[in-house]
Design a protein around this nucleic acid. Sequence first.
DNA 1: ACCCAGGCGACGA
DNA 2: TCGTCGCATGGG
Length: 262
Amino acid sequence: MNLSATLFCGQSFVWDILEENYFIGTAANFCTTIYEKDDFLFLEKPHGSYFTQEEIDFWWHYFALDIDYPKLLEKFKKNKKLCACVESSPGIRVLRQPFFDTLLSFIISQNNHITRITGIVKRLKSTFGTLLYENQYTFPSPEKLAALEVEDLAGLRAGFRAKYLLDAAKKVASGEVSISSLEKLNDDDARKELTKIFGVGTKVADCVLLYSLGRNRIVPMDVWMKRAMGQVFPKGMPAAAKGYEGIAQQYIFCWARENLKD
DNA sequence: ACCCAGGCGACGA
DNA sequence: TCGTCGCATGGG
């Protein structure tokens, strides 16, 4: 596993680097530090207390440790071009992040740069979330965010996205959009359900499906993926990615950002 | 100074 | 169901 690439390849915006190969982050109501050594991941609560069983299960699910990546990547490498993408940044895992965290993050992501997304997410959390540890905040709950007005979000400098964040919060708080009903739907119906939120279109919905709900076949098509698919995979995703096109997408996306800068 | 970003909704054809 | 445009903001 390549922790740095996994945490900073544009699928999550909630991790900070403390030292080389030593990171801290917060997801849902949980905070952890993490590093990798000798093929093991080490997670620790920053304040030194023990993890609950719930937290252990949470992080296991978050890092998708149930998926055999070495085996999956061997399949990917059967396609020459996909192999090149995997080898240009090996060890990336697609995370399964909490639903509301992911929804807000990718609403913010639209028509935006990754560095700036990270800044807005940080301000959203530190302004309206709950402090868990030094500089580590949760996202605000749907209820807390839903009670705010657009003017209240001015300090985030989220621009036109502020009203989208509020609509997402309202629809989640009211139960109009819920994780439990999304989980019962197939990919297409779940996407349709998510796009009921004002400001959530196909791309943002697909990011939620892939990065939160573990829908590994979903391929979010942003400007980089459109470029990469057009130039490298004009006939579509290779058969070697079958069933895991969304995970292949993550490798292609990273490759494109490195190699298609024009 | 200028371009553009992990897009979307509104609008017109 | 298409293509086009404006949108807020600021990093590079």
